[in-house]
Write a protein that binds this DNA or RNA. Structure first.
Lengths: 183, 183
DNA sequence: TGTACATCAGTGAACGCGCGTTCACTGATGTAC
DNA sequence: TGTACATCAGTGAACGCGCGTTCACTGATGTAC
């Protein structure tokens, strides 16, 4: 049965937000449209009235995940605070709401143009944000350091999650905080 | 029809090596047993005489991928050469034969105990290898720097592959070489 | 403001397909004598 | 060394299942008058 335009927009939002979480938790191939729609409180049949394909939803959900993490960093808390939050046990244990780069980067490399472009835009934004917090040297050197910092954060979080040894995982997070937190 | 024990062992090797490549290229969920067995020159029905399950093969193939990259680093070429090779356009474009950490870490985080343990063992080995190349400071500081270097290499390669912009991808590799190559 | 009807968001069944896994079978290998 | 037979690596068909996608339908919403 038809719903109001406002309700339809709200439902669409819910699907994108649910997908953004489930893709991060289970990977693009690890969750089906059925599960996404069900968790959003809908039946799967209505999916194609709102989205072109699963790949289209993946690109849109990735953009949503990036937008969420950008909002989470609003208020310019500075490099130290961002690095400590990023490489925290809390972030490591919250894959579904955490950084989509650490959760999905290698899978995005196999995705279509939409998802890969959304990732590139986000990477450029994060490089700029980190570079603005850095001090000393010339601008080119600060940008290089910002890129290395972003890569270090993403790699450390991904490794801390993949390892089966909690002590090693904690050590990776602590080493990253120590090495990447200085401006 | 039955084959010699030597041929059977050779076939098993071929399956593991093929899986190690295809999993890196397409992800654990992105390739089926059918495709793996076919590329290894066998039919899929014989799979369960050699392996317990797809997850079991995944763990074994991951160990194989790690063993391959360890062999690739034999001869102790030093940190500079390893970093330059790791963050090269060639390595970026050779996912199937390249570092399994950069290709699969987030997916391994969702895999079973076998794969996650194999990854942890490899991470410990790589940390030790890198730490041995570092100079200055005390041992704890060198180990912290080794962890950060490994994380930076893995993150930079994963981001360079995921981005849809070749210039940005090359810039990420170059920044990583500049920042992580010093002992 | 009230009525008549067109629109369309969402439903639920169905589609073909490929997945991981099982199994009866084949026939060359390996072994016992 | 030669023969008889048990073993078992690999084959190919089949299984139930969940996937992405399609479609006829429903009925409340939105619109034209």
């Amino acid at each position: 049965m038809r719903v109001t335009r406002a309700k339809a927009a709200e439902n669409r939002e819910k699907v994108v937000a649910t997908a953004a979480r489930l893709f991060r938790e289970k990977g693009f191939d690890g969750v089906g449209l059925d599960a996404i729609m069900a968790e959003a409180g809908l039946t799967h049949g209505g999916f194609y009235r709102q989205f072109g394909s699963k790949e289209g939803l993946a690109a849109e959900a990735l953009g949503r995940a990036f937008a969420g993490s950008a909002a989470w960093q609003a208020g310019q808390p500075g490099l130290r605070a961002v690095v400590d939050g990023y490489l925290s046990a809390r972030h490591r244990d919250a894959v579904g709401t955490g950084c989509a780069l650490a959760a999905l980067a290698p899978e995005v490399a196999r995705q279509g143009e939409g998802a890969r472009h959304a990732l590139a835009v986000h990477v450029r934004e994060q490089i700029g944000r980190i570079a603005a917090w850095l001090t000393g040297q010339d601008e080119a050197a600060r940008r290089r350091r910002a890129i290395a910092t972003l890569a270090g954060l993403v790699g450390a979080l991904a490794l801390a999650r993949a390892v089966d040894d909690k002590d090693l995982s904690d050590e990776i997070l602590a080493a990253g905080r120590a090495e990447f937190g200085g401006a």
